[in-house]
Design a protein around this nucleic acid. Structure first.
Length: 727
DNA sequence: AGCACGCCGACT
DNA sequence: GTCGGCGTGCTC
């Protein structure tokens, strides 16, 4: 049942039921004094509960299971690995409507000719009503039975005609599932108007395709513009041609609308799209299309890894390094990328992990030859790699966060018909609002954060809890003048508009681009050349390649250089390579300027000298020396509380309960980096082990104790296995 | 998560 | 003597 219980409950079969109910079927069960919808996840010959405590299932909702045995097994394995209740994973796997009891297959209204109706047609009835006669004739021609969706072709008014006919007793309406598509193979695998693959693409396609029918994991590494999508499309076409279906996972649909577009344009099969922006009804429809086998390609975000794709023969994880495959608001924090590999294993299908900047975990697996690395160099007809240069901020005159060298570069590129992309990982106008007299800095009342100035909106906003307030005209403490300090995208855009008024500028961040359509409009403005300058946050680093962009500016590389988070360097390197990769075409390679106070920093030097590969090699060596993932396994117990110390106290008790385990180090508890967020105090306890086995043995016996600890009721806590963020 | 039970303080 | 606050425990 969908309740936060540690384990599934035992029920007896429904009264009078013969045989076992298939796992994956929904049932209605008594639960306390309520009736809930639950799911059968397995069968037991015995129960730890006394026989008189067992209640029978009230009723069975499905004649066929919703989730096949493979998916149940995947969910079970994930629940085990992440130490979360199975119910939470089923929750993630099923559209809400299904959890609430909606039928597995959509019911369609059919109109059916009655015997009297057949006689009426034979007698030439109705003589005068044209509309009624048309409906009756259409029904008769179709053998007396048609879904109303097809009657709608009779034009407006068919419903009124049908109502009249039903009143005569000539037809009746009934609801049932739509007849399956007669020939789902039609047009599968067509690849029209495709450029011939490059030799590297051809090798990759051949390798992936040769793995059909068995599990193999490929890492497809190639910069933006190297043609990863072309490899996906051709491998997908081959899988379709064999009658199979393809599951494609993407970080965020909103940021990659053109990927869906390319699949639609190139592969003439129904495609279902699953992402967080869908309504409950749309999500249910997409899920049904996958399950019925009607959709041959399913493209979706994180939870689509559980989509009930029929006869899946290929999995693709695009931008596999992206953290949105892991982050999780509520429920179980699972890695959709890692589960995709499990799912491929189970399906005996190849899986492709694509990225210009693969995660160190994935590269390590390639080093171990668990995964096979396929590299796509840039195609010869496309841009050579951009040249990277560091701008030493210590020697530069600055104007609103832009150095003289950068401004000159922008001017030079705009003057020669180039486009300029400016990346800054900070939205809003300025990150700080400061009193020029007493030094007061606008704080968030609910968080340990400063409020960000949003000049256009005339507001101060907290980027952690969402608090908003009007921009004060003077210091609330001393009454003196206040001013914004520092730069956000809004201010950088304003400055560049002032400096280059003749060159149209567009901005891309969460404040200006709320929907996928907004993002697309910005991309189109840049691609069409209407916009000459693009200023934005990491939304820029995802999605499109901009051949017209000749200069990329990274305004502040430094916050990733000295972070306490061991993954900060990896993220920074990925961001720089991804944003740099947006630029350039064959005739005019891109130039990348990175502003920094630390031009001698080894990370930046490595990136400059040897690119991402050099960075990754040395970062992996560092991780090994420090025994961080992928050379060790982590689990993080997070807790938060209203009272300042309750979370820390709880974690201390949790640490004590763990004792002194073998081969697992326990670090903490410590307050989180931004301890107070939205009025709650956050803290965490880190578990680290060189072996997966030792860590999971500890978690197995430790996790069930947590709920019983003193104070457990006053804190919210959650276990994160393989955390991305240890801050 | 719900929803009960149960034990204390504020009213008729 | 009763209403209702939320702390605690249970749901097969």
């Amino acid at each position: 049942v969908d309740r936060p219980l540690p384990a599934p409950l035992d029920y007896l079969p429904p009264a009078g039921h013969v045989g076992a109910i298939a796992a994956g079927s929904r049932v209605q069960v008594p639960f306390g004094r309520q009736q809930l919808i639950g799911m059968v996840v397995g069968h037991a010959a015995t129960s730890s509960l006394a026989a008189d405590k067992l209640k029978p299932i009230t009723s069975l909702l499905d004649t066929e299971p919703l989730l096949d045995a493979g998916l149940i097994e995947l969910l079970d394995r994930a629940a085990d690995y992440y130490h979360h209740p199975l119910a939470e994973l089923i929750d993630a796997a099923l559209p809400r409507r299904l959890r609430e009891g909606a039928p597995v297959e959509a019911l369609e209204e059919y109109l059916q000719l009655t015997a009297a109706g057949v006689a009426a047609v034979a007698a030439g009835e109705p003589r005068r009503a044209q509309r009624q006669r048309a409906v009756l004739t259409a029904l008769h021609a179709a053998g007396g039975d048609l879904p109303v969706t097809e009657l709608a072709a009779q034009g407006a008014g068919w419903r009124a005609a049908a109502t009249q006919l039903a009143r005569h007793g000539w037809l009746q309406s009934h609801w049932r599932t739509l007849a399956p598509v007669a020939n789902p193979e039609t047009a599968a695998g067509s690849v029209p108007l495709a450029p011939p693959p490059s030799p590297a693409q051809a090798l990759a396609i051949e390798a992936i395709d040769a793995a059909h029918g068995r599990f193999d994991c490929f890492v497809l590494q190639g910069l933006p513009g190297s043609g990863k999508t072309e490899v996906y499309l051709r491998c997908a076409a081959a899988a379709l041609a064999r009658g199979g279906a393809v599951l494609v996972l993407v970080p965020e649909i909103g940021l990659t609308p053109q990927l869906v577009g390319r699949f639609r344009d190139r592969l003439a099969v129904p495609i279902a799209v699953l992402h967080s922006g869908l309504s409950d009804a749309e999500r249910l429809t997409a899920w049904r299309e996958a399950r019925s086998g009607r959709a041959r390609i399913v493209i979706g975000t994180r939870s689509a890894v559980f989509a009930p794709v029929q006869n899946m023969q290929l999995l693709i994880v695009d931008e596999e390094h992206d953290s949105s495959f892991k982050q999780q608001e509520g429920g179980c924090p699972y890695s959709a990328r890692d589960l995709a590999v499990w799912r491929a294993q189970q399906q005996n299908a190849p899986v492709v992990l694509g990225s210009a900047t693969p995660s160190l975990e994935t590269l390590h697996n390639a080093d171990l030859e668990k995964y096979r690395l396929l590299q796509l160099p840039r195609r010869e007809d496309q841009a050579p790699p951009p040249t990277l240069a560091l701008i030493d901020l210590r020697t530069q005159a600055m104007r609103a966060g832009l150095s003289g060298a950068v401004l000159q570069g922008i001017e030079r590129h705009l003057g020669t018909d180039g486009q300029v992309l400016v990346y800054l990982n900070r939205r809003g106008y300025a990150p700080t609002f400061l009193c020029t007299s007493c030094g007061w800095i606008a704080p968030c009342g609910q968080c340990d954060a400063r409020l960000t100035v949003h000049q256009n909106a005339g507001q101060l906003r907290c980027h952690y809890c969402g608090h908003e307030q009007a921009l004060p005209a003077c210091c609330p403490r001393c009454g003196f003048a206040v001013k914004p300090v520092g730069q956000g995208t809004e201010r950088v855009a304003e400055t560049l508009r002032e400096l280059f008024p003749q060159h149209p500028l567009v901005r891309l961040d969460r404040d200006v681009a709320r929907s996928g359509a907004d993002v697309d409009a910005v991309f189109q403005a840049v691609l069409s050349g209407a916009a000459r300058i693009l200023v934005g946050t990491q939304m820029l680093t995802k999605g499109h390649h901009f051949p017209g962009v000749t200069l990329v500016v990274v305004l502040n590389a430094d916050q990733g250089l000295f972070s306490t988070d061991f993954r900060a360097a990896e993220r920074l390197a990925q961001t720089i390579v991804q944003v740099a990769g947006r630029a350039g075409r064959a005739a005019r390679p891109g130039e990348v300027l990175i502003q920094t106070d630390y031009p001698d920093h080894p990370l930046l030097q490595q990136l400059l000298a040897g690119g991402y590969a050099a960075f990754a090699a040395s970062a992996l060596a560092e991780r090994e020396a420090a025994s961080w993932p992928p050379f060790s396994k982590l689990a993080l117990l997070r807790a938060s509380s209203r009272a300042p110390h309750a979370a820390l106290d709880f974690l201390q008790a949790a640490r004590t309960a763990a004792g002194a385990p073998d081969a697992v180090r326990i670090l903490g508890p410590v307050a989180a980096t931004m301890a107070r967020r939205a009025g709650r105090y956050h803290a965490q306890l880190l578990l680290e082990s060189t072996g997966r086995g030792a860590l999971h043995r500890l978690l197995d016996q430790w996790r069930p104790l947590l709920g019983e600890l003193p104070g457990a009721r006053n804190v919210r806590f959650g276990l994160d296995v393989d955390p991305l963020d240890t801050q």
